[in-house]
Design a protein around this nucleic acid. Structure first.
Lengths: 127, 127
DNA sequence: CGGTATCCACCAAGATACTG
DNA sequence: CAGTATCTTGGTGGATACCG
């Protein structure tokens, strides 16, 4: 693996290594908006406008940018139906589904920990 | 839950909601440096300098900032041994361990997908 | 509807220097 | 060793306007 290190050189991919493509991918999928887009698409395909409404606070520009980044990493597919008015669907690839599942688990964990989080933050800020 | 919505109001925490504290926590743990710090601490406790070396590319400033953020959310503990020369250990809390485990799974997935990622990116950039 | 283009403000983040 | 302080800058991201 790691085209980064030339043919045959590769031993293990490493997210900690700046030059490893897994780190680039990791930064893409953990991106502020990209992560939420993946979470949304984990629920099924979405259109651009639907996504914009689902991911609270995202601008058109940032959404567009996040979608391009995820498409580039092969995590989602873009389907333009070529109709008028336009209709474009975004859906996860197999790899995208895997990633989204992990992010979902992470989100669920944090959603369930909200009381703990609030307590911890309050305690920290008090001091 | 959700002190965000007042007493008794809380139904479900939602990462998609800007005001939900799970979203703030989600953004903290998926932060560019914080996520790598969590990954590192998932391997065991680390000292400041060790962490700096482990997480390739992080500056002292960014590391310090990430550590404060994670401590604030109750994901890690800071132990100052009060010795000279100074020794400070960082270790995950129970919640931090849970989060780190999820991030590890995500990183493993991406590390294993490096060939696919490289192919996808090359294809996208060609067009 | 589904974007792109442009301008601009702010802050993330690197470099450097310094301290307990 | 383990940070904090300060300065500077590049990029992130919001607002607005416009196009197929």
């Amino acid at each position: 693996m790691a085209a980064d290190e030339g043919p045959g050189a590769a031993l293990v991919a490493d997210v900690f290594a700046r030059a490893c493509s897994s780190r680039a991918a990791f930064e893409t999928v953990t991106g502020r908006w990209a992560s939420l887009v993946l979470l949304a698409l984990g629920e099924g395909p979405y259109r651009f406008g639907e996504l914009r409404r689902r991911v609270e606070g995202v601008s058109e520009k940032m959404l567009s940018q996040a979608l391009h980044g995820l498409e580039r990493e092969g995590l989602l597919t873009r389907t333009d139906h070529g109709t008028v008015p336009p209709r474009v669907d975004y859906a996860l690839t197999a790899l995208g589904e895997d990633v989204a599942r992990r992010l979902r688990e992470l989100a669920d964990l944090l959603q369930g920990a909200v009381p703990d989080l609030n307590r911890a933050r309050a305690a920290y800020d008090r001091d």
